[in-house]
Amino acid sequence: MTDFEPTIIAFVCNWCTYTAADLAGTSRLAYPKNVRLIRVMCTGMIDPQYVIKALLEGADGVLVSGCHPGDCHYINGNFKARRRIKLLKEILPRFGFEPQRLRLTWIGASDGIQFAETMNKLAAQVRKLGPSQAKLKMVI
């Protein structure tokens, strides 16, 4: 398992976390290549279905990351996202997905350093968890 490199799908909002990722890049901060960013306009548009699809397709981890409370470009999309993550964290572990495979963070547009640090930590965590059951079994 030592050479296991996880795949992490990160749904990031256009206004905060994606901008932070951009800042990390322009600041030449390194973060693991395991993280595949999917830019969405707001975390409030992330249907639980997207997360389920990513996990079933073999993602070892899924991150949803948006603006800090009060900073949402669309006022409250991040609060809606939080309820959906809460819901998924009730459902997915019932079927063997470790709760740590799904994360929600709030990373503001100016937090380039925090973005890179979070991705580093996340990749290390998921690497430690090992490959997801969906990837191992390829059941669907």
Binding site: F79, K80, I85, K89, T105
Partner: peptide, 16 residues
């Protein structure tokens, strides 16, 4: 439940 939210709730699902 998914048609509403509160500002202060479910803080346990935020963060890594």
């Amino acid at each position: 439940p998914l048609s509403e939210f509160r500002e202060d709730e479910f803080s346990e699902v935020v963060g890594i």
